[in-house]
Nucleic acid binder design. Structure first.
Lengths: 107, 107
DNA sequence: TGGCGATTTGGCTAAAATGCCAAATGACCA
DNA sequence: TGGTCATTTGGCATTTTAGCCAAATCGCCA
């Protein structure tokens, strides 16, 4: 694999890696539904330490998946590109397909 | 986050995590193009140890993204659901959007 | 200005992911 | 059957991630 190809797949992988955590996917899902949420709202929904949620948000931000906007002392996050939601349909198909294959092993 | 929600996002995250590595994305891309490839072909394209490639393929297989088929002494891998390729369009948009934002910082 | 609430950052430990080598397994052919 | 090629598995060192606490920032209002 040449250097350019490597760089291309590195960049792509960074996006997937950023989505590859249940808490971060939950955040993406929430933002897709509600448009925007502040850190404290997300923290309450998730039920983890706020510093943990803040770090997850930083991962998403650094990957370019979300953007942040300060409003007074609060910081609101929103999806930068709504298309990331399209991922979920296919992911659900994979999960369904997995479940079906599991079932067939049992039958 | 209740237990059921947690499980749902765990399952989703597993798929993204499996795609979250440049070598594995390269494999997915190749399989999307060529339909199927054996381990030795992929190993040569990637230029890593065959055991490393085999382990990456195992990650994709366990996530349900690829399936394997033995043909004699070789093992061919293929995408289980072609829709995963749709991911790439949006990922490219995010990358383009990131590049644009970077550019604007410089200007 | 002092203090409070919201958020981020630093630091630390435990867990998971990577990638190589070496060894085991499996299929095939002489 | 012995040998060889393709693949997987085990083991190990190194790096990266995750999540908590404590401390530092930042904005705002009395």
């Amino acid at each position: 694999m040449d250097e350019k190809t490597q760089a291309k797949f590195d960049a792509r992988a960074r996006i997937f890696k950023a989505m590859g955590h249940p808490t971060r996917l939950f955040i993406v899902d929430q933002l897709a539904r509600d448009g925007q949420r502040c850190v404290c709202e997300l923290t309450e929904m998730i039920g983890a330490d706020m510093s943990t949620v803040s770090k997850h948000l930083a991962v998403l931000r650094e990957a370019g998946i979300v953007r942040d906007e300060k409003k007074g002392s609060q910081v609101y996050y929103a999806l930068r590109l709504p298309c990331v939601v399209n991922f979920f349909d296919c992911v659900e198909s994979v999960i369904k397909c997995n479940a079906k294959a599991q079932q067939e092993l049992i039958d």
